[in-house]
Design a protein around this nucleic acid. Structure first.
Length: 923
RNA sequence: GCGCCUAUAGCUCAGUUGGUUAGAGCGCUACCUUGACAUGGUAGAGGUCCCCUGUUCGAGUCAGGGUAGGCGCACCA
């Protein structure tokens, strides 16, 4: 084996081995355990959030697979309507063309080509992460069977009256030229203005001043509203206003939506361009005058001089014209929430169009109940509140998109515009009894991407066919996803799955944090702080990283800043840390926190951890490969250390499993790290050396230790495998033949998880080894603080031993000598006169190192003082507690006894140290 | 406005039902090429647990109030 672990040499071959041998498919026996992959964008690439979530999903799947479950990680990709269409449009734009130049069919063909070209990208990247998803069952949301499910659902919902078409205000993206859902609009506060305009009454008697943040919409005003109880305006209600610029006569109406305190208490009403005004318009039966076209230019409904102007140009002109006419009273700076499309960043227009909607109320009820009853559990539980809050105020879902890429809406219109819904034109003709000569035209629109992903839990299992998979893997076990798509996806899956299968889609929802950079900033291209998980695995040079971060930026001027920042952050680029280190890092970061700050130095730490494991393996192999490990018989004599490490190992297994069951992967990872590094490597491997290297130990003892070395390591690899699949499989293949594991499976991933063996717990061995450790640490302590060279062998005197101390000393003397680098160990008898010594305590036993020639008197006094000070504080604290009648009277006896024992121990130690101080001071 | 979250070592984070001297990794200091590993070892320094009040024998932990930061939803003429 190489002296250092080199992940790049093993990972890809290892993965190919797994995949080519079909190890990712469900075994077909055991309890079903299924995870649905949140389908990533088919043409996208893997980002840190994916890597994080996929690590967790894979860890769970690998763990359950090794536990003997019938595991399915159902994977696939999403067609991502808007995102994908935008990418291909941008490619066309770069060639100076638009999608309209190609036409719909050619354009869609072009997207399919792009999907063929880049569609495998993200799944290849998932493979680099070690994801053991069942690629044989990989699906794409536009596959035939999924499209069939989409049509089936649409038609059923329509037939039940739960899908309807209506002309309503929607969020319109004037660049994408499509409606988008509420969730796809971000409302952020921006600086704007408030314009005050004086509208004259038609009778010329007076005027009303209205305030607006969007003066251009006045072209579509169809009323002015005041509060019905507002005394200032009682006389105006029912009169009319002659709208400036258009000359339209519009009524003054009363509606208690108006807040008399805000602005002037008079509101201009533009029902076709504002959601609140729309509602008011409906209440008062106002005309709805649309003044914009699809691209948000002023249309023919406005005076000629404004027609064709872009909305912002129109605003400027209108403000100027109103000012000139003396209608504009005042302009004030004003902060307002501006709705922008989350994809394009352009300002969204409320726009009156025909769209398809899902009436969600009846679907929401059972979906709410499923969480309320505990049938579906959120982890952490708090996220259920977010879910309820949205579900209890849920709005009908606008599912039509004016895009070309996606599932075409299965609705047809005849020449009179009458709608017919069915899975195909032929079906419709039968269903509605339409003659062949009736001309039908299919709706141009496609469905919201989330409509198909809402069907993911059952459509991927073959629905509407009644398949074995549906029966076995629905509901799935746990959904691992981010809180940002609880509404988009999670809630809608619950609604649709309940509706169409009567089952819940998943039993638990594990909500992960969002991966941010080490400063807690969201990773984004414009901030230039994005990291590609593959770069963390393979490493990347500084120049290449800068290149990657600065190409294709929306704002090229940011490139300089990003370059500087990247140089500062990664002056030498990024090292190749390997997949296992990255995965272990993600596991270790997966606490309950909602933000995960990605810290490269931690990945480095886990890369070092991999190297530690690698080298521990080298050591174990050196000592077992050409020796008898006792697997073929022969007496095994286990030392206290052997029994101790087994006991600790069993505890580790139990803790690990408990933490995984709680979805506390951070604690699970720490448990493994602690055991492996701080117990197995730091102590056990050291302790094994005297046994395997000494002529004084018997063959049986050597066998016992070799057996323990190889088998603890072999089992440890199995426990670690879900988190670190590559290194564990590589090592396992090397060590398994030497171990007691007789399995014939070709990879650790198909072997059984280690089962907790309570019989291996050994309290007395653990105590004995704790005694050894404090003995050794006591001496290292003196060495360290007294500046004694580590290589210097020390003579040690022991005093005040009890029977247990004597027994333990006898059991472990050879180890103590080696670990603490001792020259000799001598027990003082009561009658002996002790020389001047530096002292450490193990319980009541004193470990003494003669000072002569080694230790400076003043230094030792200083060291003792430090120890004594601590003990004095401790004695004072505990005495204070025990003298407090309230404490003694009210605290449980157990706690009081603990305090008493603590006090006694501190007093004992203190008196011994004080004796030492006195003795040394006399020198 | 409603709801949620966070605040612990220089940095990134754990800390379970309240109960030893509050922990880990990284970083820092000193020493060490010993034979698995310098991607290593040994020792060490480093904390007003955001603030206030309360409950309690006892609070990092519970309650109330505040401060700072973050997120979601709704509203904003």
């Amino acid at each position: 084996m190489d002296k250092t672990f080199n992940p790049s040499q093993i990972e890809q071959a290892c993965y190919q081995h797994w995949e080519s041998k079909g190890m990712f498919s469900p075994s077909g026996h055991g309890e079903p355990y299924c995870i649905l992959l949140p389908p990533p964008n088919v043409t996208g690439s893997l980002h840190m959030g994916h890597a994080f979530q996929h690590t967790i999903m894979d860890a769970l799947i690998r763990y359950r697979r090794m536990k003997g479950d019938n595991t399915l990680w159902q994977c696939g990709t999403d067609h991502a309507g808007i995102a994908t269409q935008m990418v291909v449009e941008r490619q066309l734009n770069a060639q100076g063309k638009t999608r309209h130049d190609l036409g719909r069919d050619k354009f869609v063909e072009r997207i399919w080509e792009w999907k063929e070209e880049s569609g495998g990208n993200i799944t290849q990247q998932m493979r680099r992460l070690g994801a053991s998803a069942d690629w044989n069952r990989e699906v794409f949301t536009m596959d035939d069977n999924l499209s069939e499910a989409v049509r089936e659902v649409f038609v059923q919902l329509y037939d039940e009256g739960l899908i309807y078409r209506g002309k309503r205000l929607v969020n319109w993206d004037p660049v994408l030229l499509t409606a988008v859902s509420d969730l796809e609009v971000v409302n952020d506060e921006e600086d704007g203005h408030m314009w005050y305009m004086r509208y004259p009454l038609s009778d010329g008697s007076a005027s009303l001043t209205v305030a607006t943040t969007r003066p251009e919409t006045m072209l579509g005003d169809t009323a002015v509203a005041v509060h019905p109880d507002d005394e200032r305006y009682q006389d105006f209600i029912g009169k009319t206003i002659t709208l400036p610029l258009t000359g339209r006569e519009i009524p003054i109406i009363a509606d208690d939506y108006v807040d008399p305190e805000f602005g002037t208490g008079c509101v201009k009403i533009t029902p076709a361009h504002d959601f609140n005004d729309y509602d008011m318009g409906k209440r008062h039966d106002l005309p709805m005058i649309n003044i914009l076209d699809d691209e948000a230019r002023i249309n023919q409904n406005a005076p000629a001089e404004y027609q064709g102007l872009d909305r912002f140009d129109a605003r400027d002109k209108i403000v100027k014209d109103l000012e000139a006419a003396g209608i504009l009273v005042e302009t004030k700076p004003h902060k307002l929430k501006v709705p922008r499309g989350d994809r394009t960043g352009v300002i969204i227009e409320p726009y009156l169009t025909n769209q398809w909607y899902v009436a969600v109320e009846s679907l929401a009820k059972p979906a709410i109940a499923a969480v309320e009853s505990g049938e579906i559990k959120f982890v952490p539980e708090n996220w259920s509140k977010t879910y309820y809050q949205w579900m209890n105020n849920i709005q009908d879902w606008c599912i039509s998109r004016q895009l070309w890429w996606g599932h075409r809406i299965p609705a047809w219109f005849d020449e009179d515009g009458k709608e017919y819904v069915g899975k195909s034109e032929a079906e419709i003709r039968t269903k509605y009894g339409l003659a062949d000569n009736v001309a039908l035209k299919q709706d141009e629109d496609v469905l919201d991407t989330w409509f198909s992903s809402a069907l993911w839990p059952f459509a991927t299992m073959g629905w509407p066919e009644n398949t074995k998979e549906l029966d076995t893997f629905l509901p799935s076990s746990v959904l691992v996803t981010g809180f940002d798509i609880i509404f988009f996806w999670v809630a809608r899956m619950i609604m649709m799955t309940k509706k169409f299968t009567g089952k819940i889609p998943f039993k638990e929802i594990y909500i992960t944090g969002l991966v941010r950079d080490e400063n807690g900033d969201k990773m984004s291209k414009s901030k230039g702080n994005v990291l590609d998980p593959i770069d963390v695995i393979d490493g990347i040079g500084l120049d290449a990283l800068i290149e990657k971060r600065t190409t294709g930026m929306m704002q090229p001027k940011l490139a300089a800043k990003v370059t500087k920042q990247t140089k500062q952050q990664f002056p030498n680029g990024i090292d190749a840390y390997g997949t296992d280190a990255l995965r272990f890092n993600f596991a270790a970061m997966a606490s309950t926190s909602r933000d995960i700050n990605f810290d490269m130095s931690r990945v480095e730490g886990y890369r070092n951890f991999c190297n530690k494991i690698w080298n521990a393996t080298r050591f174990v192999l050196m000592n077992t490969e050409d020796f008898d490990t006792g697997n073929k018989g022969g007496e095994l004599a286990f030392s206290p250390f052997d029994r101790w490490i087994w006991s600790r190992f069993e505890r580790t297994v139990a803790q690990f499993e408990a933490h995984v069951a709680d979805y506390r992967f951070d604690l699970a990872a720490n448990t493994l790290y602690e055991f492996t590094w701080n117990q197995f490597c730091d102590w056990y491997l050291e302790l094994s050396k005297p046994v395997v290297n000494s002529d004084a130990t018997s063959e049986a003892q050597k066998r016992g230790t070799r057996y323990t070395l190889i088998n603890v390591l072999e089992q440890l690899m199995r426990v670690m495998h879900p988190f670190m699949p590559f290194i564990t499989d590589e090592i396992w293949k090397k060590i398994k033949p030497l171990s007691a594991n007789t399995t014939q499976v070709p990879s650790i991933m198909l072997d059984r998880f280690v089962s907790f063996e309570a019989s291996m717990l050994d309290e007395s061995a653990e105590q004995e080894i704790e005694w050894v450790k404090s003995f050794v640490v006591g001496i290292r302590n003196i060495r360290g603080e007294m500046d004694i060279a580590p290589s210097k062998r020390l003579p040690v005197l022991l005093n005040n031993l009890n029977d247990v101390d004597r027994q333990r000393l006898e059991n472990t003397q050879q180890y103590l000598t080696m670990l603490a680098k001792l020259e000799s160990i001598e027990i003082l008898e009561k009658t002996d006169e002790a020389p001047a010594c530096a002292t450490a305590l193990v319980g009541e036993m004193e470990i003494m190192i003669p000072m002569a020639g080694l230790i400076d008197k003043e230094a030792e006094l200083a060291r003792l003082k430090k120890a004594a000070d601590k003990l004095v504080a401790e004695v004072q604290r505990t005495e204070g507690k025990l003298n407090n009648q309230n404490f003694v009277g009210k605290a449980p006896a157990q706690v009081i006894d603990k305090e008493k024992a603590k006090l006694a121990d501190a007093q004992m130690q203190l008196s011994k140290i004080q004796e030492q101080q006195a003795a040394i001071a006399k020198l």
